[in-house]
Amino acid sequence: NQASVVANQLIPINTALTLVMMRSEVVTPVGIPADDIPRLVSMQVNRAVPLGTTLMPDMVKGYP
């Protein structure tokens, strides 16, 4: 099973992602692959992302 990117904390709308905000976890449904975490750094979320939420491609501005 492939690990996905999961919010490690509440991420407010328009926040630029940092490594501490994300963790990898095997979840269903599958979200953004954990391998993409380095690419996500400094990209902004377009909505508030609660703790434990799987990051989906449509939540991150400019992804992929």
Rank of each mutant, 00 (worst) to 15 (best):
T28N: 13
V6H: 02
T15Q: 09
R39N: 14
V27Q: 04
I32C: 03
T18L: 07
R47H: 08
R23Q: 05
Q9L: 08
R47Q: 10
R23H: 06
V27F: 02
N1D: 12
T54N: 02
Q2A: 11
T53I: 07
G31S: 02
M43R: 09
L19S: 09
T18C: 04
L10V: 11
V27E: 02
V27A: 06
V6Q: 03
A7D: 02
N8A: 15
L40I: 13
S42T: 13
T54Y: 02
T28G: 06
A3N: 12
P38A: 11
L40N: 00
K61Q: 14
V30L: 15
D35T: 14
T28C: 04
M21G: 03
P64C: 05
N46E: 08
M59E: 03
M22Y: 02
Y63G: 04
A48C: 07
P57A: 14
D58P: 07
V30M: 10
P12E: 09
Q44V: 10
L19I: 15
A3E: 12
V49A: 04
N46F: 07
L19A: 14
G52R: 04
I37T: 07
L19K: 12
P57S: 10
V20P: 12
N46K: 10
M22W: 02
V20H: 08
V41K: 06
R47S: 09
P29Y: 03
R39D: 13
A3R: 11
P33A: 10
M22N: 02
V6A: 03
A3M: 11
I37V: 08
G62W: 12
P50H: 14
T28I: 11
Q44I: 12
L55Q: 00
V49N: 02
S42G: 15
A48I: 12
R39Q: 14
L10F: 13
I37G: 04
L51N: 11
T28L: 12
L55V: 08
M43W: 12
G62D: 14
T15K: 05
K61E: 15
Q2N: 13
P12T: 08
P29A: 04
I11L: 09
T53E: 06
T53N: 08
S42N: 15
D58Y: 15
T18W: 03
P50V: 07
R39S: 13
N46T: 15
A7M: 05
N14P: 02
V45S: 05
N1V: 09
D35W: 06
P12M: 06
V30F: 07
L19W: 14
V26F: 06
G62H: 14
A7G: 03
T53C: 05
T15N: 04
M59C: 04
T18D: 07
E25Y: 07
S4F: 03
A7P: 02
P50I: 07
Q9D: 13
A16N: 09
D35G: 15
P57Y: 12
I32H: 01
N8V: 08
G52W: 04
P38R: 10
V49W: 02
V49H: 02
V5S: 03
N8H: 14
M21V: 03
N14L: 08
N1K: 14
T15C: 05
M21K: 03
P57T: 06
L17H: 01
V20N: 13
G62S: 14
R23L: 06
P33H: 10
P57N: 06
A3C: 06
V6T: 07
M56S: 07
P29M: 04
R23P: 03
A3F: 09
L19N: 06
V60D: 01
P29N: 04
T15Y: 08
A16W: 12
E25Q: 13
V27H: 03
P50Y: 15
A34Q: 05
M43F: 10
P64N: 11
M59H: 12
L19T: 11
L51H: 10
N14K: 09
N14W: 14
M43D: 03
R47V: 14
D36C: 05
N1Y: 12
Y63P: 04
I32M: 04
A48N: 11
A48E: 15
T28D: 10
M43H: 09
P38I: 08
L40G: 00
V60Y: 02
Q44Y: 15
E25G: 12
R23F: 04
P12C: 04
S4W: 02
D35K: 10
Q44L: 10
V45F: 00
P57K: 05
S24D: 09
V49Q: 02
P57R: 09
V30G: 05
Y63D: 05
A3I: 12
V27M: 07
L40R: 00
A48G: 09
I11T: 01
V5W: 02
V26P: 06
L51E: 13
I11C: 03
N8L: 06
E25R: 10
L17W: 02
T53S: 14
V45K: 00
L55K: 01
S24K: 13
A48S: 13
V20E: 10
V27I: 05
V20A: 11
E25L: 06
T54W: 03
I11M: 04
L19P: 10
T15E: 07
V45A: 04
E25F: 07
V45N: 01
D36W: 11
M56G: 09
G62E: 11
G52C: 03
D58Q: 09
S4M: 02
K61H: 11
V45R: 00
G62P: 06
L17V: 03
S4G: 05
I13C: 05
Q9G: 06
N1W: 13
T53Q: 11
N14E: 08
N1H: 14
I13H: 09
I13R: 09
P64H: 15
R23G: 07
V41L: 15
M56L: 14
L19D: 07
V27K: 07
P64A: 11
N1A: 12
M43Q: 12
V49R: 02
E25P: 00
I13T: 10
V41S: 03
V45Y: 00
I32T: 01
M22K: 00
L17A: 00
M43Y: 13
T18K: 11
S4N: 00
S4R: 01
N8K: 10
P57H: 11
I11W: 00
V41D: 03
G62Y: 06
A16K: 14
P33G: 06
V45G: 01
M56P: 00
D36Q: 14
P29T: 05
A48K: 15
G31L: 01
Q2P: 12
I13K: 12
N14A: 09
S24Q: 09
P50G: 14
V6F: 01
T54P: 08
D35C: 05
I11D: 00
R47T: 13
Y63E: 05
I13L: 11
V30K: 13
L19C: 05
T15A: 13
V20G: 14
V6C: 03
D35M: 11
V60G: 01
G62I: 05
Y63F: 09
A48V: 12
R23E: 04
V5D: 00
I13V: 14
A7E: 00
V26W: 12
V6S: 03
D35N: 14
A3Y: 09
L17C: 03
G52F: 05
V30I: 14
S24E: 10
A16Q: 09
V20I: 13
S24G: 12
T18F: 03
G52M: 05
Q9V: 06
L17S: 00
P12Q: 08
V26T: 13
G31H: 01
A7F: 02
M22R: 00
V60N: 01
S4V: 02
L55D: 02
N8I: 09
V5F: 01
I13W: 08
P33Y: 06
E25C: 04
T53P: 01
V41P: 02
D36H: 14
G31K: 01
M22C: 03
A3T: 11
V6R: 03
Q44E: 10
I13M: 12
A34C: 04
V26Q: 13
K61F: 10
T15D: 03
S24I: 11
I37F: 03
R47G: 05
G31R: 02
Q2W: 14
N14T: 04
V60S: 01
V60E: 01
P29S: 04
L19H: 11
V49P: 02
P38L: 13
L51G: 08
P50Q: 13
A34P: 05
D58V: 09
L17P: 02
M43I: 04
T18V: 07
L19R: 13
A7H: 01
T18E: 10
A3W: 11
V27P: 01
V60P: 02
V5Y: 02
M22D: 02
A34K: 12
L17Q: 00
A7N: 01
P12A: 06
P38M: 09
V60H: 01
A48P: 08
M21R: 00
M21A: 04
L10E: 15
R23C: 04
A48L: 11
N14D: 11
S42Y: 08
Q2T: 13
N14S: 08
D35P: 11
G52I: 02
G52S: 06
P50M: 10
P29Q: 05
G62N: 15
N14I: 03
V41H: 04
L55P: 00
K61P: 10
M59F: 13
T18G: 05
P29L: 04
V41F: 05
D58F: 14
